[in-house]
Design a binder for these strands. Structure first.
Lengths: 195, 195
DNA sequence: GTCTATATTTTGATAGAC
DNA sequence: GTCTATCAAAATATAGAC
């Protein structure tokens, strides 16, 4: 016997994992119910349709991303910029390892978005915020004189592309030197153009 | 009235587009048949199941990728290396624009792969070949003395990450300066470390 | 809140005529 | 080769009892 809140949470957690592992379409409400330990109609007490469950999960994931979408660079200095950037990527890589489900389910929402504007607008927002967080960091680095201000937006986008795709590659199980790749990306970007 | 070969081809083309647009699960054989202009059972004359159709399409796509997975750098010189690299990325970006379906369907196979080893092994092969093609190009550049040989594998992987993810970002419809990002990636990588 | 029972729809797939 | 007719399975969703 569980109360409303506990069951609700359990459904969300179970759906998150099963949707990630098997995909939205290959995960039926019966399967989720069975895994949660309730009957299928019980799910309809909490969500009025499967699509609503999928959408609710999407909202939760979006909120969590938006929370972690900014960097703390209050203690950034001319000398520790490179260290800061390295740490950002390394942390992202480590997080990837600890939550294997996130990227799988997120990629499914990306596909959903290409067919449903409701998802698309939200994802574009997140993407823009994601790119902006790198740009803001570089702007600050320029402000404190840590780097020159040439092409900082493009550089920021380039780094975002690298770390984002590292996540995709990790999903496939390829054993590459991801931290090395990130380090190379940072060092490349920070190398100043010789005149 | 069509002959066997024509109908077969039409089914494949139609399935490719519909699977990309709506997804494997949301595209039924009835819908494909209707679009092709035949009845659903007619499809079973050519493919013994929906899964087989999906798999056949996968094989075709893989073959095509493998064909375009190598670069021609026979005419590479010390002075045109940067131009060569730029051209490779620009071409990839332009191709992306002309075939909007490719990345959509390919991402679905990536998800399939995470649940089916048959797809995974093939995709890992392709991925490895993809990364290797960049590595080989850099090795050749070292050979002809166009660049130093420090970290060339990592650099190659970094570039591959960038151009590959540009494709993903383009899929979302984000209007970024993709060619600028690629140019920045190339210039960053080619900048030699000051001693 | 959760259940059993059931309605409804759709899908993948087959049988068999032409 | 393609069709009509049909099957069996599975899914979403609802009704109504407890």
């Amino acid at each position: 016997m569980r109360n409303r809140e506990e069951t609700f949470k359990k459904i969300l957690e179970t759906a998150y994992i099963m949707f990630a592992d098997k995909g939205f379409d290959k995960t039926s409400l019966s399967m989720i119910a069975s895994e949660v330990g309730i009957s299928k109609p019980a799910i309809y007490y909490y969500f009025k349709s499967k699509d609503e469950l999928i959408e609710y999960l999407f909202d939760e994931i979006c909120k969590e991303i938006e929370l972690g979408n900014t960097f703390d660079y209050s203690d950034m200095t001319k000398t520790n910029l490179k260290h800061k950037l390295l740490a950002i990527g390394y942390q992202s890589i480590d997080e990837q390892k600890s939550d294997v489900h996130f990227n799988k389910i997120f990629n499914q929402y990306m596909l959903l978005a290409s067919r449903d504007e409701k998802y698309m607008t939200r994802l574009l927002d997140i993407q823009a915020g994601y790119l902006k967080s790198y740009h803001d960091l570089f702007s600050y680095a320029v402000e404190i004189g840590a780097i020159s201000d040439t092409n900082i937006e493009t550089k920021a986008h380039m780094l975002a592309m690298v770390i984002d795709n590292i996540g995709n590659f990790m999903l496939t199980g390829s054993k590459l030197d991801y931290k090395g790749i990130w380090k190379e990306a940072i060092e490349s970007v920070l190398r100043e153009q010789p005149l």
